[in-house]
Design a protein around this nucleic acid. Structure first.
Lengths: 200, 200
DNA sequence: GATTTTTTGTGAAAAAAAGTACAAAAAATG
DNA sequence: CATTTTTTGTACTTTTTTTCACAAAAAATC
């Protein structure tokens, strides 16, 4: 089991590796990657060593191979479906976000109580939350994004878990109570911004 | 100097404290707060103790007082201005996001290269990036959000730093190189979502 | 092909974070 | 008002994470 902290670091490395690739490199040394990612070279080596990812002494690491291994951690070869519950500000922005598609993550559908959002103008189909169960089962979706107001967060989450969702990205400013087998990743935009005012 | 990890925990506590307040409570015990926030009671007490925030033995902590102390960390009584550079998907969603306004954070302006965005229809005024310096100095803005495509990220950041920005919330998928006195907080939505696929 | 240089890979050490345990305080009870 | 109960605050321990240090491998040089 890899800790969330290390998982995030692998994703960070991937961003840097893509940059190196764009610049025409095919190999990197741990200190190149470390400098770019803002961590020490030892940390980079330890992280790769943890997964049994090998470099060559004096030759460094092969970028293509690193990317392959990192993508494997996140199952990039499999079907990666996601649904978005709550098509307000954030939900809509995520639906339109190119970043997900680039990485072979398919946003299957969005859900919202407001019928005015069930239009074809959206980039993804939007349904009433009552259809969550149907669609989750049809596509075998295992991952969901919660972007509803806080009052609705826990109820939406319970519904998702009941339908078979196993991983949740939660933008609502609440702590979700979920069974053991479900993972929640929290993103609180207000807190992320506000934390900065400590430093100003 | 408080670590970023602990800062984030204080903001998490605040969310929980607001919930308790809404439910009519005026006092909390460390284990109430811990359970709600998903940390141990000892952790809660340690965190508060770190800042010299006192409870009363057997009486617990006064919610009002805790909120006051937490808000002090993040300078909620002072002027908290922010600008948004890049009014695409995410930039626009953030401009519309109620969460910031609720917490007395004032979004002064947005910036984008696309002139079609300089309309009065936006919730905040949007200008050409050339006006960054003028507006940052006029309002004494110290905090900025970067939500531009990755290719422009570093250049935008350099400009912001040159204008006097000291803290950056960066949504672009790049590591920013900044001088010592500038703090960067990274939010990578793609990575946040993708990290979940490790668990599915 | 021997020597030097460079870089990985990993144990050992250090630092940071979290958890344990319990004395001290204070409210509640008898 | 003495005793019991509850909860804070913090020293101490354990665990996790990071850094240090260096042997081993391999490319480059002589």
């Amino acid at each position: 089991m890899i800790s969330h902290k290390i998982l995030k670091r692998f994703l960070l490395y991937r961003i840097c590796l893509h940059k190196f690739q764009r610049l025409g490199f095919t190999k990197v040394f741990s200190y190149n990657l470390g400098e770019e990612a803002g961590v020490t070279a030892e940390q980079v080596r330890k992280d790769f060593s943890l997964l049994g990812i090998k470099g060559s002494k004096r030759g460094g690491y092969d970028i293509e191979y690193l990317l392959l291994e990192i993508n494997n951690i996140f199952k990039q070869n499999g079907e990666r479906y996601v649904i978005i519950v709550g098509m307000g500000n954030i939900g809509q922005a995520l639906a339109n976000y190119q970043g997900f598609r680039e990485n072979k993550i398919i946003t299957v559908a969005g859900f919202d109580l407001d019928p005015s959002k069930y239009t074809r103008k959206n980039i993804i189909p939007v349904h009433h939350p009552d259809k969550i169960d149907e669609i989750v089962r049809e596509y075998g979706v295992k991952t969901a994004i919660i972007a509803v107001p806080e009052a609705a967060g826990q109820e939406v989450c319970d519904r998702l878990v009941a339908s078979g969702i196993r991983a949740v990205l939660n933008f609502s400013p609440i702590i979700l109570h979920v069974p053991e087998h479900v993972t929640v990743n929290y993103v609180n935009l207000r807190n992320e911004l506000e934390s900065l005012f400590y430093y100003t």
